[in-house]
């Protein structure tokens, strides 16, 4: 299903916060249509890595090329690239002063200069996709966490992104709302979208991932397909991590 053109390629990427070495010599490539799930303990640099992809964090050295555009601090092409990259945050980051529909249309209208009616049409279509078309005129604060996160996914989809980045999309949700968000993400995966997802939801990972990545202390420890990752991980550290979170 995946074609062999890397849409994201990372070579020898390093990132420092002051003297703290947050990402150490990261090498990874993601193909068009590939679904990558990144997991690992807190503070291992998973979020930092995914935030480097769309320039919310700037790496200090190494090469990061996404969809043929090199990412670096101050790049003029970052804005174009960000339109290709949908990002879903742990804390949703919806715009509380705008209705759901306005949250979805403001990007296409102001950034892509699409007409209001066309933007609204697209927005309603994606709200349908995430199963909340009836919430269009409400404000984010009137929705549950799971609904808000689905709006956030729809907001990224409205930008017609080629790649979706998920930064722990279910970590801030009540347990009973996690599945409604994961269901939407599984459906999205089924459409062939390229996805990079930081998550601890191993059931979801097993279901959709083409590649599993395990990070620890700023380094990538293991990259393997889910079959071997869950049954026979190469590294001891990864085995311990999986034992910890799959225990329950």
């Amino acid at each position: 299903m995946t074609t062999e053109t890397p849409i994201i390629s990372v070579e020898h990427l390093d990132k420092f916060y002051g003297t703290f070495h947050a990402l150490k010599d990261i090498n990874i490539s993601v193909n068009q249509g590939e679904r990558v799930v990144i997991c690992g303990p807190s503070g291992s640099g998973k979020s930092t890595l995914i935030r480097c992809f769309n320039g919310l964090e700037n790496h200090n050295s190494g090469k990061l090329v996404i969809d043929g555009i090199e990412v670096f601090e101050g790049s003029k092409e970052m804005r174009n690239l960000r339109q290709e990259l949908g990002m879903v945050f742990q804390q949703f980051n919806l715009f509380p002063h705008l209705t759901v529909l306005e949250n979805l249309t403001i990007g296409p209208m102001k950034v892509r200069k699409i007409s209001k009616s066309a933007a609204e049409e697209t927005a309603r279509m994606y709200l349908e996709r995430v199963h909340i078309p009836e919430q269009a005129d409400k404000y984010p604060a009137q929705l549950s966490g799971g609904q808000q996160q689905r709006v956030a996914i729809a907001r990224s989809l409205c930008m017609e992104s080629k790649i979706m980045l998920f930064d722990e999309p279910t970590s801030a949700l009540d347990p009973e709302m996690i599945n409604e968000v994961l269901d939407v993400m599984v459906e999205l995966a089924d459409t062939g979208m390229t996805m990079v997802c930081v998550t601890h939801e191993m059931g979801f990972a097993r279901k959709v991932a083409d590649t599993m990545v395990f990070m620890e202390a700023g380094s990538i420890v293991e990259v393997s397909p889910p079959e071997t990752f869950f049954t026979n991980p190469k590294s001891e550290r990864c085995r311990m991590f999986l034992d910890q979170i799959l225990e329950h």
Binding site: R79, G86, L94, I106, K110, M159
Partner: peptide, 16 residues
């Protein structure tokens, strides 16, 4: 800060 990140991630400029 998340509002900045949300807006940046959909490609808005600083002024927008």
């Amino acid at each position: 800060q998340g509002q900045w990140e949300g807006a940046t991630s959909i490609g808005m400029t600083k002024a927008q």
